[in-house]
Design a protein around this nucleic acid. Structure first.
Length: 566
RNA sequence: UGGGGCGUAGCCAAGUGGUAAGGCAGCGGCCUUUGGAGCCGCCAUUCGUAGGUUCGAAUCCUGCCGCCCCAGCCA
């Protein structure tokens, strides 16, 4: 309790954070009253898709909370529907959880590990007269279920004898009946105001091959039947899930109470929504399958693998989870929160380099032909221990097209005819001429002079100019491709049926012919840099030494862009 | 017209009867060889709303309003 005065300290999230939230309040209470004396959580994904940033919130909550209470968190695959699941997904999920920095030790489980036990439990319920085999088909079950305002009707098969139920269920298991012809249902209350209690289906017949149990089973448990017992068997004390399972809780409690087994406490929280993206598995799957993106790990996807390829760090995602908090109120987080977490992290650790994405040639007229100077540049002004490096300077350079305006607007601090600007780590130059292509009228070259007394670091370099721009020596530059990513959707909430109409057609701009400082020639996939004044970039997985490819992770804050847009 | 939840700033979110934390966004300023980073200041007389209880209410009570979820043999 004496830790509470620390709650104001931000930026300390390294393993899930320690902010106060209602989940922790409940856990504290349970520990105090002795309802439980340890904290054991679990992250239970269905292996039917890739994990996204919303799962990251849940992972940080489950693993982070367990860790902070010196408890444990299991990884469990809820693989109860063989028609939708695949090993491809179980592998990617493990990779993503590990990448985020969490460890399940030797506690990786599958709901399918429990199929035998679940079957036994079902038989026990039948023997108690609490479950029965129903011959109604799916349509008939729906008709008997009633509506939100009207009670349901009992199935005509509801009062079969225990022996008949036992026999039928056994034969269902053996595969004697076709898919959909029978189900095993819990016998609860067809008139319950909670529809989940109206004799929910526990088992359906599915002659399907399961990715782990093969053809052993012809019946598969429904999630509602498998989940609570799985938690119970694993000794999960706090079963944290999302809001939509709130009214399934009475059912889960009913099952464990009927079976007389350990009862976990379920706690529901609001799932994450983010602006300018979609989060449902169905829609993400659609984006991939319809080719709107290049795959699950496309850097524009809100998937964990997409964020990773985009250049996000695990630390930044954990910081994000900590900042947004946990509550039960439906919410939509502004994507700028995520971006700010990333910048906060990368600012401290990314090496600064100079890269010109849209080059324009600059000739320094009064600089000696053939001369090359090695200038010293700092690798990270936020972290002196990252040292310095040498970069070559010569007569012919490239600067960013956007750093020159023939007709500059007010408050434009960069280069324009007659104006002076500092070349970062080098000299102050002045534009003395503009060369244009006589056919097109486009600028092909800038003629400049430099002031030899203004070399960076020299005692006489004190002269101030308004602007400083980045550059790269033409003859030393290395070539690269930049993939400039922007938000996938151009509206904050791409909801509704028409969601694909707000897909941003400019979410990816491929820029070829970028010129980079020579040290970048050997950059390897996943290396992250700050391209000075532009943003953070990482080397794409497809990059090779002969063909460098950089992904724009996120831009720097650009106050000039803000001023100019007014 | 059933059941379960949720309403604190543009977006999140603390707050648990003693007089509205923090973050993001925004705005203004300082500083700066990244228009980066950093720093300073501003940004809810009021907590969906109307009453009630109380010396005192975002916190307790009552009514009303709004939003989300539930009628898969999906999870």
């Amino acid at each position: 309790m004496e830790e509470e005065n620390k709650q104001g300290s931000e930026e300390t999230a390294s393993q899930g954070g320690s902010r106060r939230n209602f989940v922790r309040d409940i856990i504290d209470e349970d520990l105090k009253t002795g309802r439980y004396n340890t904290v054991h959580t679990r992250f239970p994904p269905e292996p039917n898709g890739y994990l996204h940033i919303g799962h990251a919130k849940s992972i940080c909550l489950n693993f982070g909370t367990a860790k902070d209470y010196q408890g444990l968190c299991n990884l469990r695959f809820d693989d109860t529907n063989p028609t939708k699941e695949d090993v491809e997904y179980v592998e990617s999920i493990q990779e993503d959880v590990r990448w985020l920095g969490f460890d399940w030790g030797d506690r990786m489980y599958y709901a399918s590990d429990y199929f035998d036990k679940l079957y036994e439990y079902a038989v026990a319920l039948i023997r108690k007269g609490k479950a029965y085999v129903d011959d109604l088909n799916a349509d008939q079950i729906r008709e008997h279920r009633g509506t939100l305002t009207e009670p349901g009707k009992d199935s005509p098969y509801r009062n079969r004898s225990i022996d008949e139920n036992l026999d039928l269920f056994e034969r269902m298991r053996k595969g004697e009946f076709p898919d959909g012809s029978k189900t095993l249902r819990a016998k609860i209350d067809m008139s319950s105001p909670n529809i989940n209690m109206r004799d929910p289906v526990m088992y359906r017949i599915l002659h399907a091959t399961h990715h782990r149990t093969g053809d052993k089973w012809c019946v598969y448990p429904m999630y509602d039947w498998a989940h609570g017992q799985s938690d119970s068997m694993e000794g999960i004390t706090h079963s944290i899930c999302t809001l939509e399972f709130e009214d399934h809780r009475p059912l889960y409690n009913w099952f464990v109470d009927q079976l007389g087994i350990f009862r976990p406490r379920q706690i529901e929280f609001a799932r994450l929504n983010l602006t300018y993206t979609v989060m449902s598995k169905r829609r993400l799957l659609q984006l991939v399958h319809e080719g709107h993106v290049r795959g699950w790990d496309d850097p524009r996807m809100p998937t964990i693998s997409g964020l990773r390829r985009r250049g996000y760090t695990p630390e930044s995602v954990r910081l994000f989870a900590d900042r947004i908090g946990v509550s039960k109120a439906d919410s939509v987080i502004d994507v700028s929160v995520l971006e700010d977490c990333l910048r906060a992290d990368l600012n401290k650790r990314a090496r600064r380099v100079m890269a010109v994405l849209h080059p324009i040639r600059v000739v320094i007229e009064n600089y000696p032909d053939g001369q090359v100077e090695e200038l010293e540049a700092v690798n990270n002004p936020e972290d002196e221990s990252m040292g310095t490096r040498k970069i070559p300077f010569s007569k012919v350079l490239y600067i960013e097209q956007d750093d020159f305006r023939e007709d500059p607007p007010k408050k434009y601090f960069r280069l324009s005819p007659g104006a002076e600007v500092r070349l970062r780590y080098a000299y102050i130059i002045k534009c003395v001429g503009v060369v244009k292509d006589p056919q097109t009228g486009l600028i092909t070259e800038l003629r400049c002079t430099y002031d030899p007394d203004t070399k960076s670091g020299s005692p006489a370099s004190q002269r101030k100019v308004k602007g400083t721009i980045h550059w790269v020596s033409a003859e030393h530059a290395v070539d690269a491709e930049a993939r400039v990513y922007d938000r996938l959707f151009n509206v904050p909430d791409p909801g509704g049926e028409n969601w694909k109409s707000s897909l941003n057609p400019d979410s990816l701009e491929i820029v070829k012919g970028c010129r980079l400082e020579p040290g970048l020639a050997k950059a390897k996939p996943q290396d992250r840099f700050q391209f000075e004044r532009l943003g953070y970039y990482c080397v794409d997985d497809e990059s090779t030494e002969g063909h460098l490819v950089f992904n724009r992770t996120v831009t720097l804050r650009d106050t000039w862009a803000k001023i100019e847009s007014k």
